[in-house]
Structures are given as structure tokens and as C-alpha cells.
Nucleic acid binder design. Structure first.
Length: 513
RNA sequence: GGUGCUAUCGUCUAGUGGCCUAGGACAACGGCCUCUCACGCCGUAAACCCGGGUUCGAUUCCCGGUAGCACUACCA
């Protein structure tokens, strides 16, 4: 009970890291940090056929971006793993698994099977709901039905075989789950799982997972709910190895579900509904496809973390915004929900909005520069960063992403060439040219360009002439902005300056008459 | 089909037998602010899956039903 908390995130390098996987990693991380324990990253690449180049680098890069730090195993600053429980890639642990497969074989907890995929297929077709288990293994081609000589001969001849776990029938297997409590399953529903395959000399997930968790001294296995059905098998494996005493605690996390309809959230849902399901953009080297990522969509890692943390976990109170540090302090497995959580992308945007407001104008200006340079082209003179920061300060509360800033600030940098039809229809009246002509004269003769100065000039004039503030100011706004939108008008004139402001009014008078 | 898990507003959730005429957040809607569009603020609508039981009293405990999800590979 007193042992050190050690948790692991153990993805397969079969593609981009799914957002659900990210949340699993996050919960592991929070738990580890809270208990002063270790967070390990192990690569489960025992399926050679599904390996995708670049996937591993993608995973470590994604975790690093999100601020999920790895203490041991594979990570960005140690691509081949750090720590003294390595190697941390299962494909590099063949010899280790051999030893444990042999142990199970020797103790009679496993046996060798020669059934070919075709033979298994035939069996399944022949017997409805066929399961390779205590009731059927006697009918199959394996070391239980073959003589030792026959088995040796077949192996010597290079015949491909697998090692299967010999599940003892009809015993109730208890799995203690930190989130769900006691789960009891009868071993009769379990099949004799393949633990090792000679074809590629690699174990399957189940064997590698248990051996590694044991050897790496994992104290808590926190993983997705899809693993709950095989948890009894894992418990049986621990028992077969004689590792019951040091068996880790289990916690099965609720799944992330589709925003609409039913089912597990998948990559297709993201494509269909228009949101990323991956932390970073992923370029699949196998099929050439590109999938969008949260980072490239303009999300801040802290927003993604906050959003994800609240999908399946919630503290007692009404707090919505959490820093990583607060999450570490407040997280608890007991407060993880038992039911699946539908993925609500809209809330993710809201979180990003919140975090964007927290950034300084200077910081946002820095982030916005690439967009700005792209929008106004290289031909322009050096961009005044102080001005960029200033206009961002005026507009940031209306955007969720830095990428949305340009459409809010464009008129500060480029004079309107066209005028929004809707705005014109509603705000550019018959008298507007007359109003603007008069106003232009007033402004030309006016020296004090401060907001107060202009306000003190224009407002009394409007009042005196009984023009109506709305009609005049909106026409003026259309001249400067090109539409009926934007921040307070004196903030706009302030940034534009007298010369540019007057120029825009003249242009508008020419174009709109 | 089998096994398991789950079940509060459209969504994420608070709630652990009386504090609940069920709270917060996102989204929706309305209002205020205002020269505009937003933001912000205020407000409205919106839920305890169904049926039994236990109890003085059930959203909360138990059982059954129903529904959803997951698993059921020589994939993880």
C-alpha cells in the first residue's frame, strides 16, 4: 500500500494520438503529480502490421506541447527512453517476453497452439459463438491434444504457432476498480487469449502489458473503459505469474463519445462535424492523409487541458477554469464519472476564448504577426508592433482564436475598398453625404485629435444641428471601417490618426456620393 | 447472440435520504449597455429513463425493465 505511485501511458504508434488518449494521458499525469509519483511513457508496438512511421514522435511532441511531462520512458528529450526499467519500446523487449512466456508454459498456465487462421475461421463458421476455451481446446490442434514429440517436430519444422493462456473455467474473477468498485466476471466467458505469436516473435498486448507493468513497477493502471472487459484476464495473468501481491490498482475511465448520435468519438466525426480529434496536425506517412490538430487550429494547450479535464471529471464546486497546477491539486479518481462523455466542441472554443483573454496584448501581437504579414503582404513597411498590440487590446474580447483577429482589425491597417451592403442599406442614409461633408470640414479645422477632443467637437455639433447621433456616427463608421462594426469610434480615429481618417472620409464621399 | 459498464437540463456536470420549488458552465432565447458589431452583465426556457421495493421521507439505497455504450481478433 505504501509503494510509490508509478503510472504509465502506453499508446500504440498506429497513427496520431486520439484526443481520448490525450485525456487518458492527462489523468495519469495528474494522478502521478498529485502523489509525487512517476509518469512513464511506454510504446506498445507489438503489432508490427499496424505500425505508422512518425507516430511515436507525434505522441511525444503532442504531450510536450500540452505540458504533460514524462518522467521515465520515451519522451521528446529522450527518444530512446530514460530511466532504469527500459527498454520502453515493446518491440525491443523480445527476450524479456520469451522468458515469461516460457514461465507460463512451464507452469502449465499456457500452451502452444498450431491452429491456422483458416482452421479457426472454419471452427467459427461451424460452431455458433465459438470460443477457444476449456470447452473447445480439446478439439483443437495444440500441445494439449498433440504428443510432445509431435509438438517438437512441428516447431522444429518451422511451423507457425501461438501460445495461448489456459484459462481455468468457472471461477469468479474479481477486479477492483477505483472508479467502478468491484467488478466480478466468470472466467467461462473468457477465451484462451493468444499471448505470443511465433510468426513475428512478439507477444500480444495482454502479455506484454502485464509483464511490463510488473517489471516497471506500475502501481496504478489508469486506462480507457474499453479495457474493462479484459481486466479479468489481466488479473488472471498476474495470478498465473505469482504477482498478485504487487498487482496494480485499476481505474477504467469513461469513454469520449460522439457529439451527436451514439458511439465512441472517432476521427471521422471530427471530419464530419468540422473539429480536430487530434492534438497536433498529423501527416500520415502511410496514406498521405492530413488530419487537423488543436494546435494548428489555434488552441492554447492550457485550454485543451482544461477542456479535457472536465470531460469525465469534476470537482465538488462550480469552478470551470483550472490551471494544470490546480488540476494536480484537486484531481481524484473517485470523482471521475462512470458514464461516457459526449464531446462538446463548442465548450472547447469557449475555453480558448477565456485563455486568450488572459494573454497580454504584446503576447497576442507576437502570435498574430504571421497572420498579419500574410494578410498585408511583404511589400508593406515594417509593421509597428505597438500599434498591433494596441488594436488587439481593442478587439481581443470578440475572438476565440488569434486567427480570427485579422477580420476584427483589418481596417486599422487597410482602408476599406468596398462597403458592406447591409450596413450601407441600414446606416448610410440620404443625408449621410451631407453630414460627412460637414463633419469633414469640422475635422479638418480641428487640432485636438484626442477622444475627448473629438467627442467635444462632434457631439455638440450633432446636437445643435439635430442630426441624431446614430445616423451621423454610423455613417462616419462606414467611412472608416467599411461596415457597421468594430470598437468605439474614437478608438478607431485615434489609431488611424487625423490624416488617414480624413482621407477615408473623402474616399467614401467619392465612392458613395 | 453473450458478458460487462452506465443512466440528472440539448451538452459537460453538482448532488451521496430531508438543505432540491434540483445548483453551475457551454449552447439557445430575451433584456441591459451602446454610434455599430461584438464582449460583458442580467434574466428566461430546459433534466432526476420507467416500474416496483426499503423508509416517516427517495434524484440519492435495493430489485426488475428499458436504453446507451464497450468488449467479444494471432489489434491495441
Amino acid at each position: 500500500m505504501e509503494r510509490k505511485v508509478r503510472v504509465r501511458f502506453a499508446p500504440s504508434p498506429t497513427g496520431a494520438l486520439h484526443i481520448g488518449g490525450v485525456r487518458t494521458a492527462l489523468f495519469n499525469y495528474l494522478f502521478a503529480r498529485q502523489h509525487g509519483g512517476d509518469m512513464l511513457l511506454r510504446i506498445e508496438d507489438t503489432d508490427s502490421t499496424r505500425f505508422v512511421p512518425g507516430a511515436e514522435e507525434y505522441i511525444t511532441e503532442a504531450l510536450a506541447w500540452l505540458g504533460i511531462e514524462i518522467d521515465e520512458g520515451i519522451c521528446q528529450d529522450a527518444p530512446n527512453g530514460k530511466g532504469n526499467h527500459g527498454p520502453y519500446r515493446q518491440s525491443e523487449r523480445r527476450e524479456i517476453y520469451h522468458k515469461y512466456v516460457d514461465q507460463l508454459l512451464a507452469s502449465g498456465n499456457a500452451y502452444i497452439a498450431f491452429d491456422t487462421p483458416e482452421q479457426l475461421e472454419a471452427k467459427r463458421a461451424e460452431i455458433a459463438n465459438f470460443q477457444y476455451d476449456a470447452r473447445t481446446r480439446e478439439q483443437m490442434v495444440n500441445s494439449l491434444t498433440l504428443s510432445k514429440e509431435e509438438v517438437d517436430t512441428r516447431i522444429a519444422n518451422g511451423e507457425k504457432y501461438v501460445v495461448r493462456f489456459k484459462v481455468e473455467p468457472n471461477i469468479d474473477v474479481h477486479v477492483h476498480d477505483l472508479i467502478r468498485g468491484e467488478v466480478v466476471i466468470n472466467s467461462n466467458i473468457l477465451d484462451d487469449k493468444v499471448l505470443y505469436k511465433s510468426a513475428d516473435d512478439l507477444p500480444t498486448y495482454h502479455l506484454a502489458n502485464i509483464v511490463d507493468d510488473h517489471l516497471m513497477e506500475i502501481s496504478h493502471v489508469i486506462r480507457g473503459e474499453e479495457w474493462l472487459p479484459s481486466a479479468p484476464l489481466h488479473v488472471l495473468l498476474y495470478k498465473a505469474f505469482g504477482w498478485e501481491e504487487s498487482m496494480p490498482e485499476f481505474a477504467h475511465l469513461p469513454l469520449l463519445l460522439k457529439p451527436d448520435g451514439n458511439g465512441k468519438l472517432s476521427k471521422r466525426d471530427g471530419d464530419r462535424l468540422g473539429f480536430p480529434v487530434f492534438p497536433l496536425e498529423f501527416h500520415n506517412q502511410k496514406d498521405g492523409s492530413v488530419s487537423s490538430g488543436y494546435r494548428e487550429e489555434g488552441y492554447y494547450p492550457e485550454a485543451v487541458i482544461n477542456f479535457l479535464a472536465l470531460l469525465g471529471w469534476h470537482a465538488t464546486g462550480d469552478q470551470e477554469m483550472y490551471t494544470m497546477q490546480e488540476l494536480i491539486e484537486q484531481f481524484s479518481l473517485e470523482r471521475v464519472s462512470k458514464s461516457g462523455a459526449k464531446f462538446d466542441y463548442e465548450k472547447g472554443k469557449w475555453f480558448n476564448h477565456q485563455y486568450l483573454q488572459l494573454k497580454s496584448n504584446e503576447e497576442l501581437a507576437e502570435q498574430f504577426m504571421p497572420y498579419l504579414e500574410k494578410a498585408i503582404g511583404d511589400g508593406q513597411l515594417a509593421i509597428d508592433k505597438a500599434k498591433v498590440a494596441k488594436v488587439i487590446g481593442l478587439t481581443k474580447d470578440r475572438v476565440n482564436f488569434v486567427s480570427e483577429l485579422w477580420e476584427q482589425v483589418n481596417f486599422f491597417f487597410v482602408a476599406p475598398e468596398e462597403y458592406d451592403e447591409k450596413s450601407l442599406k441600414k446606416r448610410w442614409k440620404e443625408d449621410s453625404p451631407k453630414h460627412m461633408t460637414e463633419m469633414l470640414a469640422l475635422l479638418e479645422a480641428h487640432e485636438d485629435w484626442s477622444a475627448e477632443g473629438l467627442d467635444n467637437l462632434i457631439m455638440p455639433w450633432i446636437a445643435e444641428k439635430e442630426y441624431g447621433v446614430g445616423i451621423v456616427m454610423n455613417a462616419f463608421r462606414i467611412c472608416l471601417v467599411g461596415a457597421a462594426r468594430g470598437p468605439h469610434i474614437w478608438n478607431i480615429t485615434d489609431v488611424l490618426g487625423k490624416e488617414e481618417t480624413l482621407r477615408r472620409v473623402r474616399t467614401a464621399l467619392e465612392k458613395l456620393g
